[in-house]
Amino acid sequence: MIAVWLLLVAITLAEAGLAWVHTAPALMLALLLLLSLAKAALIAWYFMHLKSARPKHLPAFLFTLFACVGLLLAILPEGIRAWSMR
């Protein structure tokens, strides 16, 4: 568990490092999202015990969650459009 934790801290520091070297925003966003998903997965897999005990139908529920978030993302173009329609 300590190893997992150290990995999490290392990723956190790497993320902060991205800010340090002034990565281009688009690239930085992509990398940050990737690293954050990795961290979330680590926490869920080891700390939340998905590795050993999985609640019933978790994949289906997770799928629903991701689908909902995906749908909500459909709102984003509206933000860009609002800017161009001033």
Partner: peptide, 19 residues
């Protein structure tokens, strides 16, 4: 842990993307 997971997204998106 869930509260922790949420912060794992708040930290990069709210802080790091506003450096």
């Amino acid at each position: 842990h869930f509260v922790d997971v949420v912060w794992m997204f708040v930290f990069p998106l709210v802080y790091l993307m506003a450096v």
